[in-house]
Design a protein around this nucleic acid. Structure first.
Lengths: 209, 209
DNA sequence: CCTACCGATCGGTAGG
DNA sequence: CCTACCGATCGGTAGG
């Protein structure tokens, strides 16, 4: 009786749907403001059913973060495959990261601020996923430093870079005048100090800083 | 009977205490996770009493943001008073901003993400306060562009800069090896492309990106 | 600014 | 995965 088994509720689709809906809602409204009922509604379940797939609301967030980061990591690796020039590779990393952040379905990197609600064990799992995600970045920054195009590849530089990129979630409008390619170029130019690059002007967004 | 009047509960101290406590708790735990009872407890009031001073929890957040930003703005103006060299002025703006953000009592700039919970009218008030705060920055960036030290002073550059600085709240540890002065120098060096500046290395923080 | 309280909501569970 | 439900909490208010 394969049919009964197929309807038994252990299909990975429903689980994945829950994760996608949860990630989207957590980004939109924040972890605390999103109710487990919101998440259930979004996938057409009843209020108690998400707890059949996940032990708690916290586990939903933790899993969305870890799996989202790993998916983003896979996308990074695919995008830079075979690129040997470190400057070109940085450009691709930045562009791919911004794509994931600003137009993709996976908003994991911008849920960082929501992990406040999680316990130490969850923090450790998420930190490990972040370490994986940062590996190609650190490699590329190191190469840029060795070739003299970057003054320093120390931790603060990488962290300032991520802050710069992730902060764009607060002000970037996909329907505005600035394209993702232009934004990526601006960020790379700022990091590498390319004083020749002119950044195109845009209208001032509503809440700028 | 001046005594009765002094005890009548309209002293601005209590109001200011509530705002300080609210801002601190909103930063620590987030707007939604902070209860009005938490705030009342923090200043030794009963659960219903904050509503004598503020109509709602939202108004508490809005007021903390606007008054915090204006206090930070006043601090910026005092710090750059009389500084004519734009590069030096930028350094002071960055250092003062980081001080406000990372060690001061006023964490207003980092409550940006919490304003999700507010309505359009509150957003407009906060946006106006941000515009005031950004004025000296834009002036300084424009001067740097005219003197050729900055490729562009367009909006995206300013926004990337703020993202870079504000993101440090997620990873900077005041008790770590990196001082605020060093962090400020790193950020300015990154923005101005000073390839001669070496950034000191630090241990990798727990949750880096 | 306190006391006393309410209506609504929320995360999570038992049992099927 | 649904039904039915609970215990706890929370923002806010009335009346003083």
């Amino acid at each position: 009786m394969p049919r009964r088994k197929a309807e038994a509720g252990l299909e990975p689709n429903r689980r994945a749907e829950l994760l996608r809906a949860a990630a989207r809602l957590f980004v939109e409204k924040g972890f605390d403001a999103t109710t487990t009922r919101d998440i259930a509604d979004a996938v057409g379940m009843r209020s108690g059913s998400p707890f059949y797939h996940f032990r708690s609301k916290q586990e939903l967030l933790k899993t969305a973060m870890v799996e989202g980061l790993d998916a983003g990591y896979a996308r990074l690796l695919a995008a830079i495959d075979g690129i040997t020039d470190p400057e070109q590779r940085l450009r691709i990393l930045v562009r791919t990261h911004l794509g994931t952040l600003l137009e993709g379905e996976c908003h994991a990197p911008m849920l960082l601020g929501e992990t406040r609600a999680l316990d130490a064990a969850a923090h450790a799992e998420i930190a490990a996923a972040f370490d994986r995600y940062q590996m190609p970045w650190q490699t590329t920054l190191d190469e840029l430093q060795h070739s003299g195009k970057l003054a320093s590849a120390a931790a603060p530089v990488r962290l300032l870079l991520f802050g710069m990129l992730n902060g764009s979630k607060h002000w970037y409008r996909p329907d505005g005048k600035l394209s993702l390619d232009e934004l990526a170029d601006s960020a790379v130019a700022l990091l590498l100090g390319e004083s020749r690059t002119m950044v195109p002007a845009t209208g001032t967004p509503k809440v700028p800083c």
